[in-house]
Amino acid sequence: MIKKFDFQNMNLVRALFNLQRASYLVEAKLINFFEIPPLKESMEELIESRETFFGYFIGEELAGAISFTNDNNELTICRMVVDPNHFRKGIAQALLKFIEKEHPDLTMMKVSTGKDNAPAKSFYLKNGFILVGDLEVVPGLYISNFENRKNEPR
């Protein structure tokens, strides 16, 4: 089940905090960079985020989450996290499709991931995103930027 995140529920906030750390630690190892902002973020910073969050639940367990911002129907995915114990079960796919369905008037979706994060890059390419370029964000670390243009309102 996918539902909007309730930041009043501190047990759920802790679960999200731990989930994103576990998920981003996998990416950090893939790209050999351990300063990914969500790995450094405090629970307070997570709570104060201006992103919209949805969680993917298996029963009561938070197994994945997506966050985004939406500016004039241009949606930027800020976080896509899945519990490593639930990788390759279609959770990221379900979250992405849910967001697309919830926002039928999108003109574009954007997302970034570490250039060396092959699983994430493959996922976005498979879902209609195109690589628009790589950007060196700190010496030696490149981020791949993707866009999925929606040519006409749905």
Rank of each mutant, 00 (worst) to 15 (best):
K89E: 15
E74Q: 14
T113R: 01
V81F: 08
E51S: 12
R154H: 12
T76P: 06
K126S: 11
L125N: 06
S67F: 04
A15D: 15
E60K: 11
M10E: 14
V138E: 13
A22F: 05
R149D: 08
G64T: 00
K4P: 02
F34G: 05
G140F: 06
V26F: 08
M10K: 15
I36M: 06
E41W: 03
A92W: 00
K126V: 00
E51F: 13
S112P: 01
G140I: 03
K121W: 02
L62T: 00
D105S: 13
E35A: 13
S42L: 12
H103V: 05
V111A: 10
V82G: 02
G133Y: 11
K3M: 07
F68I: 02
S23Y: 03
K4E: 15
K110G: 10
D6A: 08
N148S: 13
Q8A: 14
V81C: 15
N85L: 13
R154N: 11
I36H: 02
L19N: 03
T69N: 14
I58S: 15
S42H: 05
C78F: 07
K97R: 10
N148R: 15
F123Q: 03
K40L: 15
E60H: 10
F33A: 09
K150T: 04
A120Y: 00
I31Q: 09
Q8C: 10
P38S: 11
L16M: 13
I2M: 08
V138I: 12
P84T: 06
G55T: 01
R88D: 10
N85G: 11
A63L: 01
I2F: 09
T69C: 11
I31K: 06
G140Q: 06
A15W: 05
P84I: 09
D105G: 10
S42A: 13
L25F: 10
F146Q: 02
R154K: 13
M80N: 07
D71K: 11
S49L: 05
A118S: 07
S67L: 04
E35S: 11
P84H: 08
Y56H: 05
L16R: 01
S23M: 07
N127R: 07
A120R: 00
V111K: 00
K126Y: 04
Q93P: 02
A28D: 07
N117I: 02
M43S: 08
Q20F: 09
F57A: 02
K29F: 04
S122L: 11
Y124D: 08
A28W: 05
V111H: 01
E45P: 09
G114M: 06
F123T: 04
V82I: 14
E41V: 05
I58D: 15
N73I: 02
K29R: 12
M108N: 11
E136G: 06
N151E: 14
Y56C: 02
Y56N: 00
L95G: 01
M43Y: 06
P119T: 06
I58P: 00
L131T: 03
E45Y: 10
F54N: 08
V26I: 12
I143C: 06
E44T: 09
E35H: 10
K4S: 10
